[in-house]
Design a protein around this nucleic acid. Structure first.
Length: 623
RNA sequence: GGAGCCGUGGUGUAGUGGUCUAACAUGUCUGCCUGUCACGCAGAAGAUCGCGGGUUCGAAUCCCGUCGGUUCCGCCA
């Protein structure tokens, strides 16, 4: 610092940068050591000023006599011109620097020569004529180029994440994420919500995902658990009368990873007292519209968000988290498929299965090879095959069905599917689960193939009317569809004793572009009902008391009606950023095998640490 | 736990049984170059083809195993 200030002087300086599309933030710095402006700061207004910049060498263009340096920081890129006639010393150092060196440059802002302006840069009208260059820190050649133009192996990116984050697209994602979270905080603050932190060291519970455990030093053989979500605590905050709570909460689940699942992830957690479904849904709907409009150029397909019943979306899309950017509905034709003598259909129906199809508009001319490809895809997902029915442009039919069904019977199926000339109809005959599963994936694949997806569209919907419980054959017990605290339709409470599978939960999931980005419910606030739900989940009284006694007890001290929701922040930002993986919007993500390639976690610890924690490692499991 | 895909100079790719003594681009290094902005030109260095085993007269290439990354199934209240 002393080096810099010795030739800079130090009164007060300001620099400003663009925070988002409308706001420009100006920072006043009173003791400048390193820079007077950022690399995105300077324009024609600054011509003639003596400035100092600091940043990374983005690129060096050495013309021998004249050297250009592009200096990059978070805010932009500024071209430095190093002319030996202005400073032989600066020119000499400029020819020594390499990519990613950290340098400090002082000089005079000058207009670029007519015709050499660069419209691609916000600073492209000017350049800084270098008078002094200081190498603050050199850099080895980076293991991959700091550029968005090529795709680098992900393990390399993760090992050198601090370099990966220098790439403009990653920087953009981090900025976007900040803006989304900031907007969330503003939104809830304006509506009277309190942001309250809940513990990270919590208690393990038998329900739900596998816990990450933290051994206790003070209590041999006992463990804390990292929270899977602050679910119970936020409900207890409602019992406490805090009324409106939110938190940007880190959550942990020790389960296998996916492109949209990390071992630790962030939820926007919300809970409100004295609310029904509508209150929560309207609040969140307004929030999402606000976020999308504030942080992206994307348009929302339908406002208000459509509300779909669980049973309907399962039937129409084969999943409870449909991508509504395109239609391509699944259509059941079991009744029509009963006609004729087609073995594939008859066999599936005889085995209590169903026959379901999808209409692929304009695909009637697909070659045998193309259809075979789709069939192979369906087989991979568990179908025995695909039955195709192609309708040519002039209405001729091509299908194995023709041999086994009358013309009218085939036509009835086509009509039911709303098939037209030039279409391809594809059918799966199997159990309802396989049909839905296969056609759900096929639907997504076809939408891609037919280019039905507008990347600028956000198709949001609510899914409601979930069953409260489903029966787990393996464990021979009921399990909560959402979580064990979800409330239920008042008229169905009696069914807890008689017909648990037909209780409608007061649950709502929010879906965006085929991703479940959140879910919540109006909760149970009556100890007796909560106790019954636990019993159906095959917890005995002792377990209930040990694991959830605090909840039941709390409900006996005036628990208000309450409800809430949790949104997956990583997934939401991923969608806003047009990324395919949440790793792209997490600064330091873990790999699919839950390791941190940069830090090398997890890692063995000293024997002494294990002893303090009263732990020993089973020898056969040591690596 | 299971299945698929990927792994070749620093990086991204090509090469799918035989002059492969491994090619191309980019990066790196050296030299030249005063208006470039993916600067240009000339030259050089740089790879036992993730690792181990097998098949073969011969393996980057085929097979098995293993490691790493990734996608999906199971799992994720």
């Amino acid at each position: 610092m002393s080096v810099a200030s010795s030739w800079l002087g130090s009164t007060s300086w300001t620099f400003s940068f663009i925070l988002d599309k409308v706001r420009r933030v100006t920072i006043v710095v009173f003791a400048v050591h390193y820079r007077t402006h950022t690399c995105g700061d300077l324009n024609k207004d600054a011509i003639g000023q003596h400035v100092t910049l600091a940043g990374w060498v983005n690129r060096r263009r050495d013309h021998g006599g004249l050297v250009f340096l592009d200096i990059r920081d978070r805010y932009g890129v500024t071209q430095i011109i190093c002319d030996p006639e202005r400073s032989a010393e600066a020119h000499r150092i400029a020819s020594e620097v390499r990519s990613e060196y950290v340098v400090q440059i002082s000089g005079t802002v000058v207009p670029r020569l007519a015709g050499t302006e660069n419209p691609k840069l916000s600073t492209g009208a000017i350049e800084v004529a270098a008078e002094h260059i200081e190498i603050l820190n050199p850099s080895r050649t980076t293991p991959f180029p700091i550029s968005d133009t090529i795709q680098v192996d992900e393990s390399l990116r993760l090992k050198y994440r601090y370099l990966d984050l220098r790439r403009p697209s990653m920087l953009e994602n981090m900025v976007l994420r900040h803006r989304v979270v900031k907007a969330m905080r503003d939104y809830f603050d304006e509506r009277g919500f309190l942001e309250i932190e809940t513990p990270i060291l919590m208690k393990s519970t038998p329900e739900g995902a596998r816990d990450y455990l933290v051994p206790s030093r003070l209590y041999a053989g006992e463990f804390y658990a990292l929270p899977q979500s602050p679910q119970q605590l936020k409900q207890l905050l409602m019992v406490a009368g805090l009324d409106r709570y939110f938190q940007i909460a880190r959550c942990f689940r020790d389960e296998d990873q996916r492109s949209d699942r990390q071992p630790e992830f962030t939820q926007l957690d919300v809970e409100m007292a004295f609310v029904a479904e509508e209150d929560v849904m309207l609040l969140i709907e307004e929030l999402l519209i606000f976020l999308i409009e504030k942080t992206t150029q994307k348009h929302i397909k339908q406002i208000p968000f459509p509300r779909l019943r669980f049973s309907d979306v399962m039937g129409r899309y084969g999943t409870d988290h449909p991508d509504l950017r395109f239609d391509l509905p699944l259509v059941e034709i079991s009744d029509l498929a009963r006609a004729g003598t087609f073995g594939v259909f008859q066999g599936a129906l005889a085995a209590n299965g169903i026959v379901k199809g999808i209409r692929v508009p304009g695909a009637g001319g697909y070659s045998r090879k193309e259809i075979e490809e789709l069939t192979e895809f369906a087989r991979m997902l568990g179908a025995k095959g695909l039955v195709s029915l192609a309708i040519s442009a002039v209405g001729e039919l091509k299908s194995p069905l023709i041999k086994f069904m009358s013309h009218d019977e085939v036509q009835a199926i086509i009509d039911h599917m709303q098939g037209e000339a030039g279409d391809l109809l594809l059918f799966v005959a199997d159990s309802a689960k396989v049909c839905n599963d296969v056609l759900f994936r096929l639907r997504g694949k076809l939408a891609e193939r037919l280019k039905l997806i507008d990347p600028n569209e956000m198709a949001l919907c609510w899914v409601v009317d979930f069953p409260l419980l489903h029966f787990d054959e393996e464990g021979q017990r009921y399990e909560a569809e959402h979580n064990p605290f979800s409330g239920m339709d008042e008229a169905h409470i009696g069914r807890l004793d008689t017909d648990p599978l037909h209780i409608r939960a007061r649950q709502y999931d929010i879906i965006c572009n085929g991703y479940e980005i959140g879910g919540g419910s109006v909760r149970i606030n009556v100890a007796e009902i909560q106790q019954k739900v636990f019993s159906l989940m095959k917890l005995d009284d002792e377990q209930i008391k040990e694991q959830f006694g605090h909840m039941l007890e709390a409900f006996e001290y005036g628990a208000p009606p309450h409800g809430g929701i949790a949104l997956g922040v990583d997934r939401l930002v991923m969608l806003l950023a047009n990324e395919d993986s949440i790793r792209e919007v997490i600064a330091f993500p873990k790999t699919q095998s839950a390791t941190d390639l940069m830090m090398g976690a997890p890692s063995p610890v000293e024997e002494k640490q294990l002893q303090e924690l009263h732990l020993s490692i089973r020898p056969e499991e040591k690596k």
